Amino acid sequence: MHGDLITLCLAGDVMLGRGLDQILPHPGDPALAEAYLRDARSYVELAEAANGPIPRPADFSWPWGDALRMLDRAEPDALVLNLETSVTRSDDFAPGKGIHYRMHPANLPCLIAARPDVCVLANNHVLDFGRRGLAETLDVLAGAGLAVAGAGRDADGARQPAGVPVAGGRRILVHSFGMPSSGIPPDWAAATDRSGVDYVAEASDTAAAAVVARIREAKRPGDISVASIHWGSNWGYTVPRDQVRFAHALVDGGADVVHGHSSHHPRPLELYRDKLIAYGCGDLVNDYEGISGHGNYRDDLRPLYFASLDPDSGALRELLIAPFQARRLRLREASPEDCRWLGNVLGRISRGFAPPLASEPDGTLTHRPRIAG
């Protein structure tokens, strides 16, 4: 805890497979089953053509770049990220999928370099290499002491929240689940006798009530509950009404933060009943440099969200967003101009944030809400 506040660092999608796996010290098999490219090293070449040479092998910390300094400076109570990569040697390419992400287990120090407290796994890539790949992913992460939520060896394991202890006997509880709108196949759902992800079939009132029941069952006085959801399209700022209702129902039922992800760029923020809802945090780490087609969304800008909460009520007291830019498969501090651009976009598309995000001299974006009462 920092003073009398609990600070969460929320990251969107972290994809350490494919091209990123190839620049690390222990690259796996580069073969891909894509219509676009057949060799993962081609993604490295695209990035180099766009922005310059990339060391091979790169240090394990390379992809995180300047973000590590920000994490050291902020010292959040918990870093929660969506790990959208299988950590496996499996060659069981999931059928019917156009993209598959895997990182060689020997490259796990790259993930460890960011010191995540919780890796949420209920996404549309964690079973890219089958249930054998998921089993190895779970084993490798557990062996490194990394807490996970959202996937497991059965339904109970997939639904188990990850807990992060905080000073004063408090906990941060992270519940992770995913929806078909993000591309998760229905047969990836965990069951009593089957491994998989915590799969929520629709953003309905009934589904929200079921999630709320789990949040209430796990939550003790003094806990902060995070609902981490993989949902929605890859591109676009519009949030469907059913997702807004669903997020509101989670907050009404006891969630203190809604941590959305799946979109490749940031989506709207909302302050609802003094609680933070991030409908889509955008990608943080991937190998998309050099791929054209959606430049108007500026998916090269990669934000980290630092939410400081009242430990008793869970109300948002301050939101700090640190924008980075992907260059040479590495995060660097975004320019002041790019920070302002991102702040203007978030201010335009977001709900319940008034006044808009302020640009600080250090390049971060901040919002300090006025709490009712």
Rank of each mutant, 00 (worst) to 15 (best):
L108N: 02
A122Y: 12
H104C: 02
D128P: 04
H104L: 01
N107S: 06
P116M: 04
V118M: 02
I112C: 02
V126T: 15
D117Y: 11
R132L: 13
C110M: 12
V120P: 09
A114Y: 07
L121D: 11
L127C: 14
N107K: 01
N124I: 05
V118G: 03
N107G: 05
L108F: 03
P105I: 10
V118F: 07
P109I: 00
R131W: 05
R115S: 13
D128N: 15
N123C: 06
R115C: 05
R102Q: 14
C119H: 06
R131Q: 14
N123Y: 10
C119A: 15
N107A: 08
I112N: 00
C119D: 04
L121R: 06
A114T: 00
M103T: 14
A106M: 12
H104P: 00
N107Q: 05
V120R: 07
N124D: 15
R102V: 06
P109Y: 04
A114D: 04
A122M: 05
P109R: 01
F129M: 12
F129C: 12
A106C: 00
A106N: 03
N123P: 03
C110Y: 12
C119G: 01
V120G: 09
V126L: 14
C119K: 07
G130N: 13
F129S: 09
P105K: 02
M103G: 07
L108S: 07
L121K: 10
V120N: 10
L111M: 12
A122V: 10
H125W: 08
M103K: 01
P105R: 02
N107I: 00
V118C: 03
R131A: 14
D128F: 02
I112L: 15
R132S: 15
P105Y: 00
V126I: 15
A114W: 05
A122N: 08
V126C: 01
A113V: 03
C119S: 13
L108M: 03
R115A: 13
L111T: 05
I112V: 15
N107V: 00
D117M: 01
G130I: 07
D117T: 02
H125Q: 13
R102P: 01
G130W: 01
L127F: 08
I112M: 12
P105T: 13
R132C: 10
P109T: 01
L127Y: 06
V120S: 08
R115T: 13
R132K: 11
C119M: 07
V126S: 04
H125C: 08
D117I: 00
L111D: 11
R115Y: 05
V126D: 10
N123I: 14
N107P: 02
I112D: 08
V120K: 04
P109D: 12
